[in-house]
Amino acid sequence: MSNHPILSVSKLVKTFGKKPAVNAVDFTIQEGEFIGLLGANGAGKTTIIKSVAGLIKPTSGSILYYDKNFESHLKESKKLIGVVPQNSNLDRDLTAYENLYLHTLLHNIPVKEREAKIATALEFAELSEYRNKQVKTFSGGMKRRLVIVRALIHDPKIIFLDEPTVGLDPQIRRNLWNLILKINQVKKTAILLTTHYIEEAEKLCSRVMVIDHGDIIMDNTPEKLKHGLGRFVLEIYNEDGITETYFDSQEAALIEQGNCQSESKIRNIALEDVIIQLTGRRVNA
């Protein structure tokens, strides 16, 4: 991974009315990185993605693509990015082919390259045989694959995926994760993705940012994030529910377990524990 930030965001603020949805966040994304943006409903994930994609105007702060100001270099910056929005924005009345063709026009792809790019995209999404079917006849998984490959047609340097796997069955979700991973590894496209499937993010992302009430409260590798809390979790089941205690070693957890009367279990820590700890504490505070 080279040291070229594609995207640097600093002090980004977006308020709706008086309420800040995003509160002075800073982050950078390097070429080829695979980053997960995690956080509860309403934390501000979509607002960040919409801001860096030019869909909404930040209240303040700066967004740079390769050190150039986004607002003053809109066209050239937008060529670098691909967007898969939270709500599918495919044209339901158009066919898969027409949706992709529209995208080649929007991105001014040379006429003689268009057909080949569309064919490759359809193949990549395993949708070649549905090329001339209207999108409104597609299943959720087919639509999602189509939006993803559409975002790639112009060979962006970075793609933003806003909950790409939500509402899909486990099988299709896994297929999609493989597709996304392939994009990152084969095309070296940097990825910023939001999801509520923390386990999957933990497996795939090289870096995870946790956002809570508009603040990025953690930004690190999943490993480092997890181990800030400990390595093992002792779950004790009592009348009030489950209490969880974190330990750096299995021995320490076993000793504690020996002292406890109720039913209990020791397991490896997961990223989910960390996120619930971090964001839960803030909700209660």
């Binding site: 994609a53 030019g54 869909l55 809109l74 066209k75 050239e76 937008k78 060529k79 990015i81 967007v83 929005p85 924005n89 495919l90 044209d91 529209l102 995208h103 929007l106 991105h107 001014n108």
Partner: peptide, 9 residues
């Protein structure tokens, strides 16, 4: 769908 126009260069 209009978002596509706004995202595009």
């Amino acid at each position: 769908v209009f978002d596509e126009f706004l995202i595009a260069p």
